[in-house]
Design a protein around this nucleic acid. Structure first.
Lengths: 113, 113
DNA sequence: GCCGTACTTAGCCAGTAAGTTAATTAACCG
DNA sequence: CGGTTAATTAACTTACTGGCTAAGTACGGC
């Protein structure tokens, strides 16, 4: 699993870690703050944070004995980039739906005449 | 890892499986066709396909002894949906970059006077 | 009906992942 | 210095993953 994108996806493949990211989307937080909602030991959360950090999904600074975590959006952006290559596969269908809706609307107007 | 999104991300966390999806983005393919580019036994590929199928990233039909695989874009769409909640985090920065570039352009004009 | 092709299942093994508790490091505070 | 809080590391268990080979199933064709 050496490659970066695999590491990113693997890090995202855990509900606890995604919940941590969701929390961090609202701003920085310390390890204890992040651990609080989970029914899990602190070392377990610490491990999850290490996984997220290695995957560059978060970064950590140091303030006294606290290690505030911050979300690294750029890495999520690369996931978005990967997805981008496939986006047309479902957007085309949406386009067709929109076309269809547009058609309906036109037909409505036609009928009103 | 019971939840769907985790299963999806886990399935995507493997370069072989992502390569298979990339191939399928170009159209249906049989197991042997999909296996061909990989230096890996057929059962190994079969397992990867099972992972992708369980994650609903592909589906399989049956034509004689062939089991053509097809990409299921809807599941990728749900990944896109999840990402959507974070998109503003990097797009804001892009906006600021665009603002900055706009400023530069304006300054250029200012200088031309 | 039997052979070949396409693919899956079974059983095995090595490596990794996710959790635990206990011990350790690091920093501040009195 | 000694105690408290914050967080990590160590050591270990258990479960899953990804690969293999070998055997089994399913189908079409001669």
């Amino acid at each position: 699993m050496t490659d970066t994108l695999s590491e990113t996806f693997a890090a995202l493949a855990d509900p606890t870690r995604r919940a941590i990211l969701a929390r961090l989307a609202k701003g920085e937080a310390t390890v204890n703050e992040l651990a609080e909602p989970f029914d899990m030991s602190l070392p377990a959360v610490s491990k999850h944070l290490k996984v997220l950090e290695n995957a560059k999904l978060i970064s950590r600074s140091r303030t006294a004995q606290w290690r505030p975590c911050r979300l690294e959006a750029d890495t999520l952006k690369t996931v978005d980039g990967w997805l981008g290559g496939y986006r047309s596969l479902w957007e085309h269908r949406l386009d067709r739906l929109e076309d269809y809706l547009a058609t309906l609307k036109t037909e409505e107007k036609e009928e009103q005449r």
